Amino acid sequence: MQRPLETLDPNLLKGLREHVHERLRQAIIAGQLPTGMLLNERKVAAELGVSTTPLKEALRRLELEGLVRTEPRRGIRVTFDAGQAEEMALARAALESMVARLAAARITDEALDNLRGITEGMKKATQSGAVSRLIELNEAFHDAIHAASGCHYLKRLLVGQLIYDKAARRFLLGDRDERGRALVEHLAILAALEARDEDGAERAMRDHIVRSGKQHVQTAFERR
């Protein structure tokens, strides 16, 4: 049986439309709103505690992102599936691994010190189970590598992939074992960057993203 969506707090700082969009995207990527499901707009709006106006706008954005599809005379159908999730993870792995390779060749001592500080925070957040903090540090880790690489074109290409990645990351890092695996992989990436090992940094980043992508597919789709 489908779990109902959590009611939104109307006092949230973001605009309500943004929250509706983000909540639905997370639910779709996590498999809470499964592939092929027809969304009843009134029911979804009632579960979220909002009117159908912000919901309709959120659904339009989700359609542009390729997560849902409008079917004439039928409604809105969830289209995000395991194949799409795997493709997006592989695309991100290809881009991020090249960014890591260039970062290994260009990274400064100052940037390495910043990454070491981030990973120390990740260790503490992993041990304490502070998921929200860990998600922030995870994003900071990858952002720091992007900055160290000096890549502007590749970073622009990554923007579309990060829409998927942020929602999948929140879903995955809720699991204690996954948090431990991710920490080990981030430390391996850092070690390769410290050694200025271009091949090693590329491989460590690619392996991390491909492995976590497969884990997301298995957890969100194959076990349902």
Rank of each mutant, 00 (worst) to 15 (best):
G31W: 00
Q32C: 05
L33I: 14
L33T: 13
P34K: 02
P34V: 09
P34M: 04
T35N: 13
T35I: 04
G36M: 07
M37Q: 13
M37R: 12
L39M: 07
N40A: 15
N40E: 15
E41W: 06
E41K: 13
K43D: 15
A45E: 08
A46C: 14
A46L: 14
A46Y: 09
G49T: 03
G49Y: 02
S51E: 03
T52N: 01
T52H: 02
T53L: 06
T53F: 03
K56L: 07
E57K: 11
A58I: 01
A58P: 07
A58V: 00
L59K: 00
L59A: 01
R61D: 11
R61Q: 07
L62Y: 03
L62K: 07
L62P: 04
E63L: 00
L64R: 15
L64H: 12
L64P: 05
E65D: 15
G66F: 08
L67I: 09
L67Q: 11
V68K: 04
V68P: 10
V68G: 04
E71W: 07
P72N: 10
R73C: 12
R73Y: 12
R77V: 12
V78A: 00
F80D: 03
F80P: 00
D81I: 10
G83N: 10
Q84K: 08
Q84N: 07
A85P: 03
E86R: 09
A89T: 00
L90T: 02
A91Q: 09
A91M: 12
A91R: 10
A94Q: 14
S97Y: 04
M98E: 15
M98V: 15
V99K: 01
V99H: 01
A100E: 09
R101A: 11
R101E: 15
R101K: 11
A103V: 00
A105C: 06
R106M: 11
I107A: 04
T108N: 07
T108G: 04
D109P: 06
A111S: 14
A111E: 15
A111Y: 04
D113N: 10
D113V: 08
D113G: 13
D113M: 11
L115K: 02
R116W: 04
G117E: 03
G117L: 09
G117A: 09
I118R: 00
T119D: 14
T119G: 00
E120Q: 12
G121V: 06
M122E: 08
A125D: 04
A125W: 00
A125P: 03
T126G: 09
T126P: 13
T126A: 12
A130C: 06
A130E: 13
V131A: 01
L137S: 04
L137I: 05
N138I: 05
E139Y: 03
F141Y: 02
H142E: 12
D143I: 02
I145R: 03
G150V: 05
C151H: 06
L154A: 12
K155A: 12
K155S: 11
K155L: 08
K155H: 06
L157W: 02
Q161K: 10
Q161H: 11
Y164A: 04
D165W: 12
A167L: 02
A168H: 01
R169N: 09
R169K: 03
R169F: 07
